[in-house]
Every structure is written in C-alpha cells, then in structure tokens.
C-alpha cells in the first residue's frame, strides 16, 4: 500500500516501502496479540504437516501402518484426545496472554471517542466527565508510554478500528460503545485502516495515530485549547459562501456543520482524505477541486466551479487552521 509512504517522514524506522505492518508491535496490547498470532501460525503449520503425513501414509503407506492408522484407537487419540488437549491449553494460554486487553486501565488514562462514519473517523477527546472537550477527525494524538482508552462507536454501518502496531482490531457497531485500549511505547506515527467493509471507498478509509513525548503532547493540547480563528477574512467569507461551512466545523467561527470532518486543526494534520494522502497545499487543492477523482463515492461533492484564485484562497484558509 504505497499510500503509507508519506507517513515515513521523520519516522526512519519504517522500511522504504511498507505495507501496513501487522507483525510489528509498538506497544503492550499489540505485543501480546502478535505473540499469540505467531504461536497460532506455528501450531497450524505443525498440524498441517501431521495431516499431510497421515494423508501420505493413507495413500502410499504399507498395509500394516495403514491398518493401524485406520483403527478406532487412532481416531480417539488423533481425532478427539489431541485436539481437546491442544485447544484447551491454547485457549487458557491465549486468554491469559491477552489478558492485558481487558484489564481495567487507570482511571486517569486519557479517553477518546472515535466514531466511524462513511468513510472517515470522528475523533472527540473527552474530559474527566466523559464529555467531548476537543473535536478532531481522522487523526489521533496520544502520549507515548501510557495506555489510552478508545470508545468506539458508529453513526451508520459497522466499521472496524484497527491500528495494527498499537492494538487489536475492534468493530464499531451502531448503537453500541466498544472499549479498546491502545498504547505506543515510543513516539512515532502509526497507520490505521478500517477493517470491516463499509461500502464504496472502504479501502480508502485510513487513520493516523501520532504518539508524542508526554511533555510535547501536553504542549500540543494546551496550544489547541487556546486556538483562535486563523486565516484571511476573504477565505472565511469564501468558506461560508461556497457552502463548506454547511458540512464542516471550524471552532471559533460560525462554520459549524457536523456532517463532514471537523476542520479546526485541518492544517496541522499529517494526512488528507482520512489517512490516504499527504497533506500539503497541492493535495489540498486537488481534494477540494475534485475529491471524487481521488476517493470515488465519498460524500464531498467536487468543487469544479471554483476559479483558480478561489481554490487557492480556500486552500490557504483551510491550511491556516492549525
């Protein structure tokens, strides 16, 4: 998936061309899942070898050994005894290994509500009382080395939240709130992806998690809390008159649409279009001008009626929102 290549800036750990790294845990929750996955894969390979060997004996083996293998004793041992013992051991071990995923997280842990939408993510940082304190979209900032609790919800169909390096995948079911802990041990950028088919552009429903040093994270959040309206008055007027404000909110202005992603911090986002494109002036112009050619079927209409100057003004206005 080349579209992740833009995330590698300042993240030298990732290889030159990376697919979503599934077996490369960056925290304790993903860690236990990865260990269990390797054990399951190894054991499945072992069982496959045993079955293939038995098949070979059944086809080409000698008379005596075939008779032995076809007896009731072999069925009792190989068909019932062996699976019961192995699967029971595996179940107990697997549950204890991944216990950390269901263990209670400290009450002081940060909570974020992430709501699946067709085909993006609504992000709400919650305060101590569980009320949304800051709204963002498609990107999550977390402090490194601490567990963060995610409340996963959906506004339309079933989505599945998955950032493979930070935790397991968990469905977002309409009308339910599922809790998923995530943690990154060190600062970095981690790609996510919707893992449950949710319609047309499902494959282009990505997510970005950015883990910071705790002090740096506190600074970032403090800066966001004191955010003032930014960008030119001309841009703000255009944002209203072309209809952007009907779907997009920018805190501190009268743009308060809730149908599309919140753009209060759009200029500081690492990605565009829900984790699928790098965020720079050029890609932003392309997205506003004709997002349908980039992410066909998404709910933002193309704005082909804008003049080049209008497109530039609008782009600069959105990019000024940090």
């Amino acid at each position: 998936m080349w579209r992740l290549s833009f995330m590698q800036e300042g993240n030298s750990e990732l290889p030159e061309k990376s697919i979503v790294p599934v077996f490369d845990p960056a925290g304790p929750y993903a860690g236990s899942i990865t260990i269990l996955s390797w054990i399951l894969i190894t054991m499945a390979c072992g069982v496959l070898l045993i079955v293939l060997a038995a098949l070979w004996v059944a086809l080409f083996g000698g008379e005596r050994i075939r008779k032995k293998l076809g007896g009731a004793k072999a069925v009792w041992i190989g068909g019932i005894g062996f699976p019961v013992v192995v699967l029971t051991v595996l179940l107990v071990y697997g549950l204890s290994l991944t216990r950390n995923l269901t263990e209670p997280v400290p009450r002081t842990a940060m909570r974020v509500r992430i709501t699946g939408e067709m085909w993006w993510w609504r992000v709400a940082y919650l305060d101590g009382q569980g009320r949304p304190a800051m709204i963002d979209a498609n990107e999550l900032h977390i402090p490194a080395g601490q567990p963060v609790l995610l409340e996963l919800e959906s506004n339309d169909v079933v989505h599945s939240f998955w950032v493979p390096r930070l935790s397991g995948k968990l469905d977002m079911v309409p009308g339910r709130r599922n809790i998923l802990p995530i943690q990154a041990d060190t600062p970095g950028v981690f790609a996510g992806q919707c893992a449950e088919y949710c319609g047309g552009p499902h494959a282009l429903m990505g997510f970005v998690v950015i883990a910071h040093e705790p002090a740096e994270f506190a600074l970032l959040m403090a800066g966001r809390r004191t955010k003032r309206p930014a960008g030119s008055a001309e841009g703000a007027a255009l944002f209203r008159s072309t209809g952007c404000a009907a779907c997009h909110r920018i805190a501190g202005t009268d743009a308060n649409g809730m149908a599309g992603p919140d753009l209060t911090y759009a200029g500081s986002r690492r990605s565009l279009g829900a984790g699928i494109l790098p965020n720079n002036r050029g890609t932003m112009m392309g997205w506003i001008g004709d997002s349908q050619s980039i992410k066909p079927g998404n709910r933002m209409p193309p704005y082909k009626m804008l003049s080049a100057a209008q497109l530039q003004t609008l782009t600069d206005y959105v990019r000024a929102q940090k």
């Binding site: 590698q8 494109l277 050029g282 392309g286 001008g289 050619s293």
Partner: peptide, 23 residues
Amino acid sequence: MERVGCAACHEISGIRWPKGKAG
C-alpha cells in the same frame, strides 16, 4: 511523487492510485 501526492491532481503513467482530475 508518491510522498508528496502529485497524483491527487494528476493522472500519471505508472501510478495506479489516485488519478486526480483537478489538474
């Protein structure tokens, strides 16, 4: 080109996605 996302606006030989039409 993949890092900076030229294809967000342009269709480019050798780049399968996206095939932007703004440019």
